[in-house]
Nucleic acid binder design. Structure first.
Lengths: 212, 212
DNA sequence: CGGCATGTTGAAACGTTTCAACGAGAGTGG
DNA sequence: CCACTCTCGTTGAAACGTTTCAACATGCCG
């Protein structure tokens, strides 16, 4: 634990802060994978765009999470700033060098990849068999698990409805309807565009698990 | 490259062969993650089962692929033998020990995780926005890419229709209809239950990318 | 050759998407 | 500070694709 902090700060040392504006592209699919990043502030979305213009968001990254660690030479997805983003950028090579001296940094990368994989498998499970309402419920539940807001049961999402829809594999309209349905059932409240209050956590869980 | 082989054989040394019969469970979600495995022969499916009884297959593993490397203490999915399976089983601890001595084995794990992650993201992209026919086409295309059969453009899948459906996030019937549609278009042939011949690779690609 | 699991097809029910219109909120300039 | 505008979010109705339920075909094994 203690040592991990030492290592972390070493990693932080080699990185430089970079800023990105709302919707700015951090890197594109196919670019040479020169850097990996750690979110300091804001949110980043990892997505793929298809021939038909539709977009699938593969993952979101919130403060303290790392993204852009690729094993291949090129980035396999596109990363964009959801809102304004502050991030730490580390050259790939530096990481490789650090890894040699301190094999435990390899453990960190492993842990990070492992976490991404678990998230991706969860995502697959969701897209594979859940209804629109269940997806929205699962999504909020997952956010609640790693809530960043101090206020109990309040989610401050920097995401637009379109972002949510693209993550859930739904249209914006369907997402909206599912949201409205949850509001009608008094399971959530939406006091403002980007704020969700969970009024009935158990109810939300029941829905996420196919209880309605 | 050459060194990789050395390492590989070292890894093989600490493992023991184990056999599993058709549909046998190799490990269940929640079990203590004691071992990781490498497929020698046959195919393994990694899946999650839901409260409603439905199943989502998250990944398949074919000969030479490794699975069961978890960072957490428990397996997060269930692994089952699709047909008869021969596999190499390595205790988790041994791997950890090996890793210490030879940091490059860590690289192997990293590579393996990275590959799984790429596959999972591809899977998410598919489930998120492709139609039934597009999914089936993409699936065959992916299999063609890593074909194990010697015969050109012939896929020998050990999977049942149910397995395919559960991977594609569709019902068995929809999968079947999509298959029949592809047959009707003379893009594929299905000479036997578990054999698919691709007659028009370009056509298949076109469909997978939303060309029809 | 029967019997049983697996695969295939059809028709109605269901949920999501599409297209279209409307509402609400945030930011700008008067 | 209000009004305007523009983007974003919400709702409705018809079209579409997938699922469901049911029947039937096929192939495999004893």
């Amino acid at each position: 634990m203690e040592e991990a902090c030492v290592r972390k700060s070493e990693m932080d040392k080699v990185g430089v802060s970079v800023k990105f504006g709302r919707n700015e592209t951090i890197y594109s699919k196919g670019d040479e994978a020169r850097y990996s990043y750690k979110v300091i502030e804001g949110a980043v979305r990892l997505s793929r765009i298809f021939a038909d213009g539709r977009r699938q968001i593969v993952n979101f990254f919130l403060p303290d999470e790392t993204f852009g660690i690729e094993l291949s030479e090129e980035y396999t997805s596109t990363a964009e700033a959801v809102g304004d983003v502050l991030a730490l950028r580390c050259p790939r090579l530096c990481i490789a060098q650090l890894t040699e001296g301190h094999p435990d940094i390899g453990q960190k990368r492993l842990a990070m990849l492992s976490k991404s994989l678990a998230a991706a498998e969860q995502h697959v499970a969701m897209l594979g068999h859940q209804s629109a309402k269940e997806r929205v419920a699962s999504f909020f539940l997952a956010l609640e698990m790693q809530r960043r807001t101090e206020i109990e049961r309040t989610l401050d999402l920097p995401l637009s409805r379109q972002d949510i829809a693209d993550y859930l594999g739904l249209t914006i309209e369907t997402t909206c309807r599912a949201l409205s349905e949850l509001k009608r059932q008094r399971i959530i409240e939406a006091p403002s565009r980007r704020r969700i209050v969970i009024r009935d956590l158990a109810g939300l869980q029941a829905i996420a698990e196919g209880g309605a």
